[in-house]
Design a protein around this nucleic acid. Structure first.
Lengths: 138, 138
DNA sequence: CCGAGAAAAGGGTATATACCCGCACTATGG
DNA sequence: CCATAGTGCGGGTATATACCCTTTTCTCGG
């Protein structure tokens, strides 16, 4: 009986771990991880946003986004304020320190992104996303 | 000024989260996550193995493998015993309960794997792995 | 055979991720 | 205008991941 082939999920997880380590190493001088960098960049692009909207944008669980904001808030890169118009909402916004961190990180990110892109074109990654999108949520 | 393109790493992480959720959902009836399933399968394939060797095999940090084994040991799927020949080593082995869990999980995994493979051929994933392998340490 | 260095683990810390539950607040139907 | 349904969020719990430092145990050169 033929052995089962490798698990697609485990294989992709392994690849993602490696890629994450590469980006994290590249961003280390700026004191950010790629996850944190992405959140800061999203805040810069979208402006102040409530946690739930950020989570939706990143396709992350809401509580995960809340917890991912914690270290950023603790280090003063993000401020969380209650929305006066809807007191349930906590609006995340980039602080000056957060903007500075982003400014320091962007060139490092661009360098890593270019280096990776040379080996792993964005079309390949986009292809994966597209293929997985066809597996909808039942 | 053109906006920076999406981050390859964040995009791949997002895809991996989605894929993991799909596999985890498929394996839920067997009470396993895909991470745990992979470890059990590795133990079945390789036989009893010290934690460090398992970590190397999975390309995981040693301490991560040790912690990933915890829930499996707690639930009785894996046994950890000190190697008499080298008392530093803790050898992980599949228990009967672990084998049973695997037997229950394999058909679920095969179903998920087949379903995903139809949308995301293993060649595409293998391609990513190969491309990332060319990025060794600069 | 013994001491120095290497190897295997464990524990501490930190982050990333998701589920559930309950609380607080808002919006809405009568 | 109030009861209720719905929404946003925090906290609890669990897993996944990696780094560091320390302890235990081996191995090997002298």
């Amino acid at each position: 009986m033929a052995a089962d082939p490798p698990c697609l999920c485990s294989t992709l997880r392994r690849a993602t771990r490696a890629l994450t380590a590469t980006y994290d190493a590249a961003l280390r001088p700026a004191g950010l991880r790629v996850t944190q960098f992405s959140i800061l960049r999203m805040l810069e692009r979208l402006g102040p946003m409530p946690v739930t909207r950020l989570a939706t944008e990143a396709v992350l669980d809401r509580s995960t986004m809340g917890r991912n904001l914690d270290p950023l808030e603790r280090r003063g890169f993000v401020r969380l304020t209650v929305n006066a118009a809807d007191q349930r909402e906590r609006v995340a916004s980039l602080t000056e320190a957060g903007r500075d961190a982003l400014v320091a990180a962007v060139p490092l990110w661009r360098e890593a992104q270019a280096r990776i892109e040379a080996a792993l074109p964005s079309t390949v990654v986009a292809d994966i996303t597209g293929r997985l999108a066809t597996l909808d949520r039942p």
